[in-house]
Amino acid sequence: MFVHDTLLNRLKRGCATMAYPAGPAPALPERHGGALRVEAAKCQADCAACVAVCPTEAVTRPPDRRVALDLGRCLFCAECVKACPTGAITQTGDHRLAVRRREDLVLGEAGNEQLRLAGVLDEKLRRLFRRSLKLRQVSAGGCNACEADTNVLGTIGWDLGRFGIQFVASPRHADGLLITGPVSKNMELALQKTYAAVPEPRIVIAVGACAIAGGPFVGHPQVHNGAGVLLPVDLFIPGCPPHPLTILDGLIRLLGRLEESGRKTG
């Protein structure tokens, strides 16, 4: 009766996959502040409170502008939000964080208070990958949190497969890499070989603060500070770790599968 019971169970359960992106996105948890917003105008002249508390030197006060918040290095610990006396840095609660270019992650310029979100791939790649994107995941020496949050996208709640996105067993089968971890020296060769083994055209996605800029391990002699040092990256998804919703948003935005017009795109 096993088959019968299973079938009945399945029928009773119905569909458990979330409606997003056809419906509203699930809410972010309380602790998750979402994307950060920097209003440099509110910055005081001699104040370096945010710089002092940032564990990864993500927020700096460079000489040419008042404040620069590099979301690629940011761990989203929100200490700078608490430390800022003027409230120049605020949390927006927006789950959308993915960008196409590294410089788009640096906030603080006038007109650059928020992220320019990721645009779609160019036409040729979009046509190739729009309905089928196979990714090879490379875990390059991180803490595994980004891998866990990427992995959960495969469960029936999120169901990455409905977008045609799938993680495959061999880079020979892949259209691109999804890299997590700060790329330790031990994993450098493996990462190079994996990239070389992916047939062209190929894309590279860096997920997490480690993969973008080294994360908590930035500056350590045994790591390269992020995948961008070694490979050309097409999509950056910041976070530590980025929420699965953020990752999903980044992926389908890249493929142009997101219907809503939303914010300005770059």
Binding site: S170, R172, L189, A190, L191, K193, A196, A197, E200
Partner: peptide, 14 residues
Amino acid sequence: AGTRIGPTWDCGQR
């Protein structure tokens, strides 16, 4: 289609 010659995939081992 272009041809690219590379080493055999070896799971990234050395």
